[in-house]
């Protein structure tokens, strides 16, 4: 597999970040960065990452099943994550979650038919003082009301 030049440069820097003989340390970051480009952790990607690091593919699989941000199935182009953990719950994060499901017609970890949007109920994402919080891919949105949520989604639809 080949990746974009930008990603290749990033991976090279990554592999040089660890002491000699410790390339396995690059495994999780490499999966995260390549997943962003490929869309999910495909069987080919597992093989490729294993080859580049020099470990058996089973050691890659072991890690993929452990971490919640590594997905074997592709998520939407815009992955919408709503936090319902305690600090967000206290600012009606659970109601925001229900609203999100209705607005998008999706449930937990479901992807829209056109592959554009996916939805996930997530655990605390470190935005507790600005609750309730939503993340779209890696972008944070704070103090999200139902109206604000609709605006976020509408602006994503415009981007498509």
């Amino acid at each position: 597999m080949t990746f974009s030049a930008k990603l290749e440069a990033k991976l090279e820097k990554l592999l040089n970040s660890y002491p000699p003989g410790r390339r396995k340390s690059a495994l999780i970051p490499m999966l995260m960065f390549t997943q962003d480009e490929v869309g999910s952790i495909t069987p080919e990607l597992v093989q490729e990452v294993a080859k580049r690091i020099g470990i058996p593919p089973v050691q890659v699989d072991e890690v993929v099943t452990y971490y919640s941000m590594l997905h074997k199935k592709p998520m939407g182009k815009y992955h919408v994550q709503v936090c319902t953990n305690i600090s967000c719950l206290l600012w009606d994060g659970d109601q925001l979650w229900e609203h999100a499901c209705k607005k998008l017609g999706l449930g937990h970890k479901e992807v829209s038919a056109d592959g554009q949007i996916s939805l996930e109920e997530v655990e605390c994402m470190g935005a507790c003082s600005w609750a309730p919080a939503v993340q779209v891919n890696y972008d944070f949105h704070h103090h999200v009301t139902k109206e604000k949520f609709d605006q976020i989604i509408d602006s994503l639809k415009k981007l498509q």
């Binding site: 396995k24 495994l27 999780i28 050691q59 072991e62 890690v63 452990y66 971490y67």
Partner: peptide
Amino acid sequence: LYTHTGAGAYECGEESALLESLEGKRG
């Protein structure tokens, strides 16, 4: 000095699990 990304696991905040994760293993 280097940055290193986790991949979504609360347990990796626990120091010894973090080190496992930093070595490329399950946390």
